[in-house]
Simulated scan of single mutants.
Amino acid sequence: MKAVTWHGKRDVRVDTVPDPIIKESTDVIVRVTSTGICGSDLHLYELFGPFLDEGDILGHEPMGVVQEVGSGVTAVKPGDRVVVPFNISCGTCFMCGQGLQSQCETTQVRETGMGASLFGYTKLYGQVPGGQAEYLRVPFGNTLPIKVPDGPPDDRFVYLSDVLPTAWQAVEYAGIPAGGSVAVLGLGPIGEMSARVALHRGAGQVIGVDLVAERLARARDRGVHTLDLREHPNDMAEVIRDATGGRGPDAVIDAVGMEAHGAPAARIAQGVTALLPDPLAANLMRRAGIDRLHALRLAIETVRRGGTISIIGVYGGMLDPLPMMTLFDKQIQLRMGQANVWRWIPEILPLLTDEDPLGTESFATHHLPLDSAPQAYETFQKKQDSMIKVVLQP
């Protein structure tokens, strides 16, 4: 089969690799029909080389049609249409029972001290072959795949793999009071969908911050009050406070993460790390503070006293310096973590109706064949061609 594979920093290719096979009685083989490129994939493209091997298959946002099932699978059958969550959870352990599928005790990667395994996402998370491929082996066939109806186009459902539950959790964790205010830092796919979800769930004021014109325009068209970081490089916190009666928003969602703009020292550190031999670089990334924290610092400065910061952007450093005095003094609540996909599916799935209130069918800006993945990664990383969300179609 064809699959998108990692070969080095900014070097992904479409290779021919062996087809996946049934290994356990509860495995399912899915023929992938749509698979997204996530902003988190760009961390692999740019930074996480020390935790990847050449030829690793990327991707964690797939859906498709069940091709084959193991002898112990009864919940789905060949021909069923399914979405595959990005985190690999058994559905039956203590953590899954708490709605914490991202901490699944069956698939936790204990040798690296991390939570549940992820499809297509480095040795830190199990080095499981990913879904940017023609076929995907999916374990826990009775509990992991999300069965969806035939008929509507893939775009109605494919974001159940990551984007929708991640954005839903970001808003849930933000704890926005009814009619309250939230600032969303970063209007990439997750940030923009978080803004849409916040409006849908009754936020009275949603402020979106970015520096890419196309992202700002898309959010503005959905009713978000947008602010261009380029126009307020040094006083954005004050501008946001002014827009919220001088107090600051009830909540801030950090949808940017480790590669924030405005952090030159950390950017240099990230660049130096990428030049080190893999064992040294991996050790540095796991033990040092190399994240660019500009967005998180802006969130801390901006949120009202007693407010909540919901962090959904990915961070990777262990010793990042944070203004703990400010966090304590302002009595700020922090919530964060990988999305627990199955926790939110019962709430999201009923919204994927003909009315499509979250605008899923028009969410992708680009639909491309799998062979176009290398160019798509480069274009997405450089924020060119008005590319905001890419769906590959094997």
Rank of each mutant, 00 (worst) to 15 (best):
C96W: 02
V65N: 02
G245N: 06
L227C: 07
G36V: 11
R335N: 11
V84S: 03
E134V: 01
V182N: 04
G115P: 01
D235L: 10
L136W: 02
V128S: 01
D242E: 14
R215P: 12
C104V: 04
K383Y: 10
E378S: 14
M325G: 14
R110T: 14
G130N: 03
M114H: 09
T353G: 10
T365C: 11
P145L: 11
I88C: 01
G316P: 00
L216N: 08
D291A: 08
A339M: 12
D228N: 15
D15V: 03
I146H: 03
G317V: 05
I37M: 12
T308L: 08
D254A: 07
A195K: 08
L352N: 12
L280H: 03
L211E: 06
D242S: 15
L136I: 13
V272D: 09
G188K: 01
G8H: 12
L349Y: 13
H60T: 11
L276Q: 11
S362R: 15
L275G: 04
R230V: 09
I332Q: 06
D242G: 14
G245T: 09
Y121S: 10
R196D: 05
G70Q: 09
A373I: 01
I253N: 00
S34Y: 04
L136Y: 02
T112H: 15
L352I: 09
L44K: 14
A281W: 00
Q98D: 06
D56S: 14
V4T: 12
R305K: 12
H367I: 05
G55Q: 09
A174N: 06
P374G: 11
G39Y: 00
L124W: 07
L298F: 10
E238D: 15
A269W: 07
R230S: 14
A364W: 04
R196K: 14
D354G: 02
H232Y: 13
T33D: 05
K330I: 09
Q333Y: 05
A213D: 15
R343D: 01
P145M: 11
V109W: 06
K389Q: 13
V148P: 08
Y125I: 04
G188W: 00
Y315K: 10
I311M: 08
P62N: 04
G141T: 10
R81F: 09
P346E: 07
V109C: 09
K382C: 08
G313N: 05
P346I: 07
H200S: 10
Q381L: 09
V76C: 12
L352M: 12
Q169M: 10
K123A: 14
G151C: 08
L334N: 05
P78E: 08
G359I: 05
